[in-house]
Nucleic acid binder design. Sequence first.
DNA 1: GTATCTGCAAAACATTTGCAATTCT
DNA 2: AGAATTGCAAATGTTTTGCAGATAC
Lengths: 144, 144
Amino acid sequence: MNSITNNSHDVGLFLKNHGIKPSYQRLKIYSFLFENRIHPTVDTIYKNLCPEIPTLSKTTVYNTLNLFIQKNIIQKLVIEETETRYDVNTSTHGHFKCENCGKVYDVFLENNLLHSSNLENFKVNETHLYFKGVCEKCIKSIKK
Amino acid sequence: MNSITNNSHDVGLFLKNHGIKPSYQRLKIYSFLFENRIHPTVDTIYKNLCPEIPTLSKTTVYNTLNLFIQKNIIQKLVIEETETRYDVNTSTHGHFKCENCGKVYDVFLENNLLHSSNLENFKVNETHLYFKGVCEKCIKSIKK
DNA sequence: GTATCTGCAAAACATTTGCAATTCT
DNA sequence: AGAATTGCAAATGTTTTGCAGATAC
């Protein structure tokens, strides 16, 4: 459970506790993900942090995200092969991508899904579930 | 339901029935997918068909697969951002990728999965589910 | 004979790598 | 000072695009 708050002191501690030196760039990138639960792409993160960190490079964003994944504090979402997204919520949950507005929503499943005899003797490390379609907002705005 | 057999005459008819002119390359590419349910990448398809069609180019493989997807007779699987795979089975089902041997297995779910109040007012067009881990064969061979 | 299909070469992108400069302790 | 981090430029790898030649009906 993520019980940390979003002030930079706590993010620093959080990173330290996961074996990550809290550099300025790392703090800002993690805080951006934590405060904006929009499953951003590298480009979105980069563009949003540029005003604050004018010297920032995409390489650093890539390096940092890969480090976070390796230390298991974020997860990678592959919905389209052309855009990798990142999520601070590392628990197993689904996603919904709206084909109209492009927004990615979290999806939490009610029933204890996913029983398959196919997997009985397999070791499952990761479960990924996503949907594509049209979100409520877009359905309403299209109808108008 | 795919009830066609794998001789080239029937594949030709099948393609025609879906508004696709059955060229030699298209027949061979569809037949390869139909006869080898291994969820191959473009590269795998290309390498396997090259001996049979020495003039084949990857562009044609890409063009053909995109046409098949557009006509809805195959589906795209995005499990890793670095490798797109293709499946002749267009029904909704899951996949399992072994992190050891790289093989992708089909996963058919028993219970009528996937109820989420989050999606109540959303229009769902596609459902994608996949797992990563270690397959039975690899578990056994690692133990030895 | 005209439409379509194929396949080469080049372009377009996202991501990674090598390495030199910078920063932190 | 020494070790880690950052960021530029170049490399890599996949997919798409433009276009000319080949093929099919």
